[in-house]
Design a protein around this nucleic acid. Structure first.
Length: 404
RNA sequence: GCCAAGGUGGCGGAACGGCUACGCAAUCGCCUGCAGAGCGAUUCCAUUCCGGUUCGAAUCCGGACCUUGGCUCCA
């Protein structure tokens, strides 16, 4: 029985699907710059979750959005002298390449925000009809947070509607903890040629609305899982819930799963801090993709993982050892019997059942490898052990059996 | 300020009421034309602090202290 940590309840819950097909929506990358390996921690987690669900016999429909419009994307394009479409097109391509390099299965659908303007408009209109949205004096349309009672339920923040200010001691500055957010942003000069002429006026969608539009379009108003990094919890996911509630009367997802941050030298890895590594950074340094993946899997997704080059080297070494062992097994013809495969597979499954504990799963694989390198299995056992590795690899996707 | 997570050997990290993993590093062997890899063995008074519960606590309860994350850029 698979148990998953639901951010909504802040506890592990047994997974029970809503229907025949498990619907999964993931907040994918913002395609205006290279994704960093912290981003990929989330996508790797999600990939393994999907593979595991399929192994468990579920049918899965998986949607991963590509955010191809937002303030930063527009300003980056302008800075680099490109059109928004050139910029996001290029980074979408790179993202898909990186996914492939990490042996991640593609989602069933990769919708990008700018393809769903009519759906976005429809939801905003619904929100206005239902009294959850209003036109601002600047011509933009805003969500009226005071109308939504569930505001703050996911982030567990005591969010109050209005313009109330709280003091943030750390920065010694005042900041509004809450305000209404834009659903539709009216046109400004800085937007250049990025706008749509619509019945809501000339402008572009706000940051959160595209997820409401696309998840509803492909998975309906109520589906199984919504996945993202913890930094999406507030405000993004909180806003998505508010939007869906305002438009359709319910929280769109039953489980909200959030991957914790990847740290570098004890600090959060993020684009804003500038302390991040992209896939190509690491590949250019000579590290292999599967070692990166191995390292990212070495810790349960609900715990913070500190990225170090030492850890990366170590991961590569472990991987190499497994590859050697698998190679050796292909020609094994010793006299030793290896019969506890079933127990090993069971333990592996138990580790993943417990909130997808990939760190523990890897450890089980390491222990198996250690054990085998000490004996000389006979032909039949060798085959059995290879089968076990195949099973592990079908879920972890470490490329042990890729045709070379 | 509010809400969370966590503090285990030189380092990384399991265990989560009793038998104190494992990996790296270090030392010594075996293997090897050399090197690497591998295998075996050995070493290290490790559970932040103070109370409490218990026959017994790293593990449970209270209280300190420290670190990290979130509080409208973010996976």
């Amino acid at each position: 029985m698979l148990r998953l940590f639901n951010s909504l309840k802040r506890e592990k819950e047994t997974f029970r699907p809503l229907g025949e097909v498990v619907g999964i929506y993931t907040c994918g990358p913002s395609v205006y710059q290279y994704a960093h390996i912290g981003n990929f921690r989330t996508f790797i987690f999600e990939d393994i979750l999907v593979r595991y669900l399929k192994f468990k016999g579920y049918q899965v429909k998986r949607v991963m959005n590509l955010t191809d419009i937002e303030d930063k994307a527009i300003s980056t394009a302008r800075k680099e002298g490109k059109t928004l479409w050139d910029l996001t097109g290029y980074h979408t391509k790179v993202f898909f390449e990186d996914m492939k390099t990490l042996n991640l299965l593609p989602a069933d659908v990769f919708p990008k925000a700018t393809d769903y303007i009519p759906d976005i408009i429809a939801i905003i209109k619904k929100l206005m009809e239902n009294g959850y949205a209003y036109s601002g004096t600047d011509g933009s349309i805003y969500y009226d947070v005071s109308k939504f009672r569930g505001w703050g339920e996911l982030s567990h923040l005591k969010l109050k509607a209005g313009k109330k200010k709280i003091k943030r001691d750390e920065w010694g500055e005042e900041s509004a903890i809450i305000s209404d957010f834009a659903l539709w942003k009216s046109y400004e000069k800085e937007d250049g040629d990025v706008f749509w002429e619509t019945e809501l006026g000339k402008g572009r969608p706000g940051w959160h609305i595209e997820c409401s539009a696309m998840c509803t379009k492909y998975l309906g108003t109520r589906f199984d899982m919504h996945i993202g990094g913890v930094d999406n919890i507030f405000p993004h996911h909180e806003a998505v819930i508010a939007q869906n509630f305002g438009a359709f009367g319910e929280n769109p997802s039953r489980y909200w799963l959030h991957c914790r941050h990847l740290m570098v030298d004890g600090k959060k890895m993020s684009k804003s801090a500038g302390n991040f590594y992209t896939m190509r950074d690491l590949l250019d340094m000579g590290y292999e993709p599967m070692a990166i993946k191995y390292l990212l899997l070495s810790m349960n997704y609900r715990r913070r993982l500190n990225f170090t080059f030492e850890g990366l080297v170590d991961a590569g070494r472990k991987l190499e050892k497994m590859r050697n062992t698998i190679e050796m097994l292909k020609f094994s013809n010793g006299g030793d019997d290896a019969e506890n495969m079933r127990k090993t597979m069971k333990n592996f499954e138990r580790a993943l059942d417990d909130n997808l504990n990939t760190g523990k799963a890897l450890k089980i694989m390491e222990e198996l490898t250690d054990e085998i390198s000490r004996i000389n299995p006979d032909r039949e056992s060798g085959e059995k052990i290879l089968g076990t590795y195949r099973f592990f690899d079908s879920i972890l996707g470490l490329g042990f059996f890729k045709p070379s």
